[in-house]
Design a protein around this nucleic acid. Structure first.
Length: 268
DNA sequence: ATGGCTGGTAGAACCAGA
């Protein structure tokens, strides 16, 4: 690492489901948690319309945007300088699903939005499911060549463990928790010996969810959540993590995203 | 009780999310 790192670093990741209509929630979350770096997915805005001024007023003067019209879109907002933004298109279809940056002290932060994969977990009848699996496989090839300390965060759209969903048995055939997806994600994990920070701090079989469907009248009733959002770190980076949580209160705020932010603090 | 909702964009008998 070149420059010396700050004493502590707090990183948050949040599938925001439209950044423009979620600024009140973002201000409230920033007041609660004050992350140094905020990685967003599903910003749903082209870069020229991104609410850059609002984030600047909250202290996030360093902004790396990768948006597109209507769908997807990722962004990294930071209080610390960032450089060398990379964009990978692991489906080769132009969708804005990844952006990566390098911090001055040598840590890479990679922000990814893995495709949801459609309804039917069979690539022969549902091309979106095949695209999701292929996306993860290409990410795996990419990660095999990573040599720098890296933190990869985002909406992986896969809940790998039995305790990552409200009912393992009832979700076995539901896209996000099928064995073939979990096998693909397991290969990705092995490609860089990624450490799952969520489970480093909340070990299985404890409940840990980051998403609850909009379709329930009361998201707290029956607690039908899934852990779709993740932060995975290079082994050396994982050793510096001192706290991790899913910020569940956000799901109960006015006009919430269906995902809640996840937050990890590091003592570098 | 896995769609019963929520977005963007168009102005939908839409598409997508997961």
């Amino acid at each position: 690492m070149s420059d010396s790192p700050p004493p502590t670093l707090k990183v948050a990741s949040w599938n925001i489901n439209s950044v423009r209509i979620r600024m009140d929630s973002i201000e409230r979350f920033v007041a609660d948690e004050a992350p140094d770096i905020l990685c967003l997915q599903e910003t749903k805005v082209v870069d020229k319309d991104f609410p850059a001024g609002l984030f600047r007023s909250l202290g996030y003067s360093h902004q790396i945007l990768h948006g597109m019209p209507m769908y997807h879109g990722v962004a990294i907002l930071s209080k610390l300088p960032m450089r060398e933004a990379t964009r990978n298109d692991w489906q080769d279809n132009g969708e804005a699903r990844h952006v990566g940056v390098l911090l001055d002290f040598g840590l890479r932060i990679e922000n990814v939005y893995i495709p949801a994969g459609g309804d039917v977990p069979d690539r022969t009848v549902n091309p979106k499911f095949g695209q999701k699996l292929d996306f993860v496989e290409r990410m795996t090839r990419w990660a095999e060549d990573l040599r720098q300390p890296t933190l990869i965060v985002g909406d992986f759209n896969i809940a790998p463990l039995e305790c990552d969903v409200w009912s393992h048995k009832q979700l076995l055939d539901v896209v996000s928790h099928t064995p073939v997806e979990i096998e693909a994600l397991t290969r990705f994990q092995a490609s860089h010996d990624w450490v799952d920070l969520g489970r480093q701090f909340v070990p299985a079989p404890e409940r840990l969810f980051t998403w609850w469907s909009y379709r329930s009248n009361d998201w707290t009733k029956n607690d039908r959540g899934r852990r779709l959002d993740h932060m995975w770190a290079s082994p050396d980076v994982a050793k510096t993590a001192i706290a991790h949580k899913a910020h569940e209160p956000c799901r109960g705020w006015l006009r919430p995203s269906d995902h809640v932010p996840i937050v990890t603090e590091f003592n570098l």
